[in-house]
């Protein structure tokens, strides 16, 4: 198992955009998460193990670029990388609708995970309010932005990730 350089570049480019350009898209403090979209796109095609590795890589980048606890995103992203990788093995046709659902689901799982972990470490932190106030809107926003991003770069991504279904190709089977 080895990482492919373009995929890593895709992940790092998402990270750079996340701290610079994405801030312009902020709505009431909520921003789409491009790194999570990248982790999803790479993991759903790579299987569980690659999903974990790509998730961990995206998570550590996120941890470094965030003012929070180190390891929070590393673990959370590894989790969702695994889930995406596992789900990818059971998906026959990765359409835009499936991508929306997939990105929304992993974003919500990652958000809920972060909220629960933070409520554990930060005194008085309201996890339920964070899930409703941050995780849920961010998941919707990330899913919308993610589907658009994958659609816009579908041709380039289709070469890098042959059976992502972004260039009208369909996966033959599980």
């Amino acid at each position: 198992m080895k990482f492919r350089v373009p995929l890593i570049f895709f992940l790092l480019a998402s990270a750079v955009l996340q701290v610079t350009v994405v801030d312009w898209l902020s709505l009431w403090g909520v921003r789409p998460n491009l790194i999570l979209v990248a982790v999803y796109a790479l993991s759903i095609t790579g299987g569980e193990m690659r999903g974990i590795m790509y998730g961990a890589l995206g998570g550590i980048v996120m941890d470094c670029l965030s003012g929070g606890m180190m390891g929070l995103f590393l673990s959370g992203y590894a989790l969702v990388g695994y889930l995406a990788g596992r789900a990818g093995r059971r998906v026959f046709n990765i359409s835009e609708v499936a991508n929306f659902g997939g990105i929304f689901a992993i974003s919500l799982v990652q958000g809920a995970y972060s909220a629960v972990v933070m409520s554990t470490f930060i005194n008085g932190y309201d996890a339920w309010a964070a899930i409703l106030g941050v995780a849920l809107p961010q998941s919707v926003y990330t899913a919308c932005a993610g589907v658009l991003m994958l659609w816009l770069f579908r041709k380039r991504l289709a070469d890098m990730v042959p059976w992502l279904g972004l260039a009208g190709r369909r996966r033959a089977g599980a």
Binding site: A15, Q18, V19, R31, G67, G68, F73, S114
Partner: peptide
């Protein structure tokens, strides 16, 4: 020059 990468924390670079 930069903002927090996540929506969970509030920090600036």
């Amino acid at each position: 020059v930069g903002r927090d990468a996540s929506s969970w924390f509030k920090s600036v670079l």
